[in-house]
Simulated scan of single mutants.
Amino acid sequence: MALALAVPVFGPPAAGKTTLTAALGALPGRAVFRLREHVPETILAATATSAERLGWIDDFTVVTALRGYIEATASASAAHTVLFDNFPGSGAQVRFFLTVLEQHAPGCAVRAVELAADTTTLYRRAFQRRVCHRCERDPIRDPRLPAVPSVEDAQRCARCGGILHPRRGDAPRLLRARLNRYRQTADGIREAFTAAGVPVTQLDGGASADQTAEAMTVLLTRSSQP
C-alpha cells in the first residue's frame, strides 16, 4: 500500500482539527500525524506554558520529526492516506513538508484543508471542551485530545470514568496567544501551498463534527479518484 494522499489540516484553535482527523484517521488505510507525538519531551515542556512559545517547535526539530515519520510510513506501506493534524504551522513548514514528501513519497498527492470558524464559536468550544488525563497519557501531562463526557455525569469521561479537566492551552491568556499566532501565520500557509500548486479547501469548522466529517469525506473521495 503506497502513500497516495497527504491531507494537511490547519486552522485556528478549537476549529475541530483534532476531532476531525481522529475520526477519519481511524478508518482502514489511514493514519494521523501529530507533530508533538514525534518530538522530545524536553522540547514540548519548554513550550507548554509560555504564551510566546506555546507549542512552537524549532524548524530543525520539525524537519527531523517529519522526515522520520514520512520515511517510516512510506517504507512500511501501512497507510494510503495520512491526515496531518494542525500541520504545517507556517509557510516555511509548508515548504519543508512538500520537500520531504517529494523525497520519500514521490507521487503522493496533497490536498490542504483549512477549517474556519468565527471567534465566538472558537471561544465557546475552548471553554466547553475537556480532556482526560487518565485516557491520554501525555508525556508532559498536557493532554490535547478532546474527551467525550459521560451521559450520566458531564464532568467524567465516558470511556474510563475519570474526572475531566480543561485543556491547559485553553486558558484565556494562552488561547488569545494561540489565536493571534494563527492569524499571523495563516496567510503564509495558504500562500506557500498556492505557490506550490496545492489547492487549499476551506471547510466550515463551525458546523457539527458529523457535518464537517461528511464534507471532508466527500473531499477525500474526490481526491482519490483518477
Rank of each mutant, 00 (worst) to 15 (best):
L3I: 10
L5Q: 04
V7N: 11
V9A: 11
G16P: 11
L27E: 10
R30I: 13
V32T: 15
R34S: 13
R36H: 12
V39E: 04
P40K: 12
E41A: 15
E41P: 11
E41Y: 02
T42E: 15
S50L: 03
E52P: 01
L54M: 12
I57F: 05
I57M: 03
D58R: 06
D58C: 04
L66A: 10
L66K: 00
G68I: 01
G68H: 06
E71K: 06
S77W: 10
A78S: 15
H80Y: 00
H80C: 09
S90D: 01
Q93V: 13
R95A: 06
A112G: 12
V113A: 08
L115I: 05
A117L: 04
R125S: 13
A126I: 11
Q128D: 03
C132L: 11
C135T: 09
E136F: 02
I140N: 07
A147M: 06
A147S: 05
P149I: 04
V151K: 04
V151L: 05
E152W: 01
G161A: 10
G161Y: 13
G162T: 05
I163E: 13
L164G: 09
L164P: 07
H165F: 09
P166N: 00
R168P: 03
D170C: 06
R173T: 07
R178H: 12
R178E: 01
R181K: 12
R183T: 09
A186G: 11
D187R: 12
D187Y: 10
E191N: 10
E191A: 07
A192D: 02
T194P: 03
A195T: 00
A195Q: 01
A196W: 09
V198S: 01
V198I: 01
P199L: 05
P199S: 12
Q202W: 01
Q202L: 15
D204C: 04
A207L: 11
S208A: 13
S208H: 02
A209R: 13
M216V: 15
L220K: 13
T221F: 09
S223C: 14
S224F: 14
